[in-house]
């Protein structure tokens, strides 16, 4: 499985569009939202937006794995894996891990531009924990992207992944603070995986550990999306 992770990571990092959309876009949007929109109230918003955009970049990269998988299905690569001695659970797990690793550059790029360009100041431990939590927290979204990719055609996956990504990002308050939402929407936002995902980061920036509810909800989303990915792979195996 390690060899599979290595191979898939190489393939992702050699993809120019991944570098542009997975790393460049979140940095650009972060800088635009914090400097041109004049949004929110100063430094707080810069920190909050930095975490939101790092989270958004992480999601984009995580779900990008799903788009890749759909393309792999179309060219027969999944078929090739199926006739090799690699169990389906290992294929999904390996792809999820390789997808996760490629999430890291996007997170680092936004955090760096926050520190260097927007002058965000946090303790050293906060930077490290922030990076790790955002990284690990992206795993459920990798699973969601993979589930879509195994299930749908390459084109449909692209559209559905972007829709999921934008929908969840906005609903979870990654683009605009949840406090700006009307009350009923705020209630829904609390349960979204994206909001909880960003909460991992917000809690860290405020100097405390993420709440039990956040950890539990993230775990639940991971299980749900993970099951979705495995079921989808089994299905794709039959039709691919």
């Amino acid at each position: 499985m390690f060899e599979y992770i290595k191979l898939e990571m190489r393939r992702t990092l050699r993809d120019a569009s991944f570098v542009v959309f997975g790393i460049g876009m979140p940095v650009l949007m972060y800088l635009l939202f914090t400097n041109i929109g004049g949004g929110g109230n100063g430094d707080d918003w810069k920190v909050q937006s930095m975490i939101g955009m790092a989270a958004y970049g992480a999601l984009g990269a995580a779900m990008n794995a799903g788009t890749g998988v759909a393309a792999d299905k179309a060219i027969g690569w999944l078929r090739q894996l199926r006739i090799a001695p690699l169990a389906p659970t290992r294929v999904v797990t390996g792809r999820a891990i390789s997808g996760s690793v490629t999430v890291l550059p996007g997170i680092l790029a936004v955090l760096l531009s926050g520190a260097l360009i927007n002058g965000v100041r946090l303790d050293a431990w906060q930077w490290i924990v922030l990076t790790l939590l955002l990284w690990i927290g992206a795993l459920p979204f990798t699973m969601l992207g993979l589930g879509n990719g195994y299930r749908l055609s390459a084109q449909a996956t692209g559209v559905v992944n972007v829709a999921c990504l934008m929908g969840l990002a906005i609903l979870g308050g990654l683009w605009f603070p949840v406090s700006a939402f009307p009350g009923w929407l705020r209630g829904i936002a609390e349960y979204t995986p994206t909001h909880r995902f960003a909460d991992l980061g917000w809690a860290t920036s405020q100097g405390h550990a993420p709440g039990l509810a956040t950890v539990a909800l993230m775990g639940a989303w991971l299980v749900a999306f993970g099951a979705y990915a495995v079921v989808s792979y089994r299905r794709s195996a039959r039709t691919a």
């Binding site: 599979y4 191979l7 190489r10 050699r14 060219i75 090739q80 090799a84």
Partner: peptide, 26 residues
């Protein structure tokens, strides 16, 4: 097996691909 309809997978060298496939076999 050598299948008929597979297209080459992008962004991998011949050696990387062949050694990856081999690595899964006993």
């Amino acid at each position: 097996a050598m299948l008929q309809d597979g297209q080459p997978i992008p962004r991998v060298t011949v050696r990387e691909l062949v050694s990856f496939i081999g690595s899964m076999y006993p």
